[in-house]
Design a protein around this nucleic acid. Structure first.
Lengths: 200, 200
DNA sequence: CGTCTAAAGCAAATATTTTGCGTTAGAGAG
DNA sequence: CTCTCTAACGCAAAATATTTGCTTTAGACG
């Protein structure tokens, strides 16, 4: 198999001009948000900065919320610069803490907000969970002991409470919220768990 | 202490005209959404139906997303028509199933979407969790056995995974998702739990 | 190199949002 | 009860944003 010329194959006219326009528009959104903030960002502004006409943007993204949501998704890159040591009771809590720090920050929250503004209520809001699975899987794979749970269980136990409380709670999150959840989760699934224990 | 005359005390001019305007506007939003759907709903439309001028709406709510979000919050009334029998292993899963049915329905999802559109990323998106706590507390109170967990733990274990997967997942939810989570949760906290077991 | 078309440009037509200023309802004092 | 005072509303003009019909262009494919 020789190399594929076009890197994308989604739309009918993927390469060339369309791509350039998309990149220019995305770059303009990033630049303008960084410069003036998300508030008051308008399509004509973005169009001017990107060097395209507003109608181009309206036809492709329909409105500013969708566009910003699109950009936010592209830029969600919570890479996991984590070197698993092989012990789940260390690795999972460490990752959880890092993840919380990323998400519960000004840019993290802004990303979630922007992405959610473009959500239609039916299809998923964004590949946020997809972005997280590889990190969790990597940690599980690195475990020296057998793992008796799957990635989805980790999402339910540590990611879900974090996101839910970020979005639907007023008070600032306890800084160890995700870490604690991860610790409890690992404890619960360790082979020599004592059972019942205390709540939470 | 004698009775307070004004039922509201938030704004500087709470009763009378302001209140009438707010009610008319809210009613107009509800009616128009029911009639034509959320798509394409505009401030001028709402204003016309409510019998007020657009500028009134703009000054009070700033934009249609905020207004719709506001309305959605007022109408979130997931009442719990549930008669606890006193056994957590029955009551909690039953409630969880009912809750999922409410939330993962067309109107439920629309409500969450609308509410989230108005979220600013910092303060909580809506009192969704507050609305849920009383139901859980009622079930716990009705339990004939001692309860060794708190309401927040239930939110983390059953509500959070449900909401997170509704929002950040593509595939339709398993209809027993919340129920299963509740069953596992109760099991985990039952006095005679066997411990480790298999994950999820 | 020529054809064919999705996507971009352009500009006129609409629709919306913003704003300044006059008006009104209703709370509170006397 | 009447008077005063002001937050919130109405109105209309101005400023912006959005939609739309038609033309032009880039680039995929034969």
């Amino acid at each position: 198999m020789s190399e594929i010329r076009s890197p994308l194959r989604s739309g009918p006219r993927p390469g060339g001009r369309s791509l350039r326009v998309q990149e220019a528009v995305h770059a303009a959104v990033v630049a303008l948000i960084e410069e003036f903030g998300r508030e008051g960002l308008t399509v004509p502004q973005v169009a001017a900065r990107a060097g395209v006409t507003p109608s181009t943007i309206y036809r492709r993204w329909s409105d500013i919320a969708t566009l910003v949501s699109d950009v936010a998704q592209r830029n969600l890159r919570i890479d996991c610069p984590l070197k698993p040591c092989g012990r789940l009771s260390d690795d999972l809590p460490a990752w959880a803490e890092m993840y919380q720090d990323e998400m519960d920050s000004t840019p993290g929250r802004a990303m979630v907000r922007d992405v959610l503004r473009g959500w239609d209520g039916m299809q998923k809001a964004c590949p946020l969970l997809d972005a997280v699975r590889p990190s969790i899987a990597m940690i599980c794979d690195a475990s020296s002991e057998p793992v008796n749970f799957d990635v989805e269980a980790v999402i339910d136990a540590v990611v879900a409470p974090l996101l839910t409380r970020m979005i639907f709670t007023d008070a600032p999150l306890a800084s160890t919220l995700a870490r604690d959840a991860a610790v409890a989760f690992v404890e619960r699934h360790s082979p020599n768990a004592s059972g019942s224990g205390r709540g939470q």
